[in-house]
């Protein structure tokens, strides 16, 4: 996927989000939470798109670091701990419809950790999952509500999402 394709995909997802959630003129109970690292800039772009399309209030946007909730944390015999970064959810998620955003959906383990983390912040009315790429190979019963692109891959391949905010360019590529 190139930059143009990513932009059009996110615009389509923004329309789908509004179609499914917003009563006309009303996005008040929506909120976006991006999973670090690359879910965060995608969530911010979606917030901007929702505003452009809908014209209403800004949808509150947060950033979630799931490191402390990982299921493989203490299982490695050797090696340093993964770096923990800040979780920033500067709004109450109680009774909100949360759009959880990540770049790639793969085993589902990150999303499991993110769901556990979100529940520690409150009790949202609903959580919906937005991903730019679904590459299959789920290990947990998790399914995305909005998918930018389904990319059939083999487990030996890796899917790299590059975003301007993090990597200086917009591109999705399959390696290996």
């Amino acid at each position: 996927m190139d930059a143009d394709r990513i932009a059009r995909t996110l615009t389509r997802i923004a329309h789908e989000i509004l179609e499914r959630n917003a009563a006309p003129g009303d996005v008040h109970d929506l909120a976006l939470v991006g999973i670090r690292t690359r879910g965060v800039p995608i969530a911010k772009r979606l917030a901007q798109l929702l505003r452009d399309i809908h014209g209403g209030d800004e949808v509150p946007t947060g950033a979630l670091d799931i490191t402390l909730y990982r299921d493989d944390l203490m299982r490695h015999a050797v090696g340093p701990q993964p770096v923990v970064r800040k979780t920033e959810i500067p709004f109450s998620i109680d009774d909100k419809r949360i759009l959880l955003v990540d770049d790639v959906l793969y085993t589902g383990r990150t999303i499991r950790a993110a769901l556990d983390a979100l529940i520690d912040f409150g009790r949202p009315k609903a959580i919906q999952l937005v991903v730019l790429v679904d590459r299959g190979h789920r290990e947990l019963p998790i399914k995305a509500d909005y998918v930018g692109k389904n990319l059939p891959t083999s487990p030996s391949q890796s899917v790299q999402v590059h975003l301007v905010e993090v990597d200086g360019r917009d591109e999705v590529e399959i390696a290996g």
Binding site: D65, L68, Y69, L73, M74, V84, R85, K86, T87, E88, D116, A117, D120, F121, G122
Partner: peptide, 17 residues
């Protein structure tokens, strides 16, 4: 810096250890 935020949550606990 990241750990400090946990102390400001309604549930001040993570399952890490």
């Amino acid at each position: 810096e990241a750990m400090r935020e946990i102390g400001q949550r309604p549930i001040k606990k993570v399952p890490t250890l």
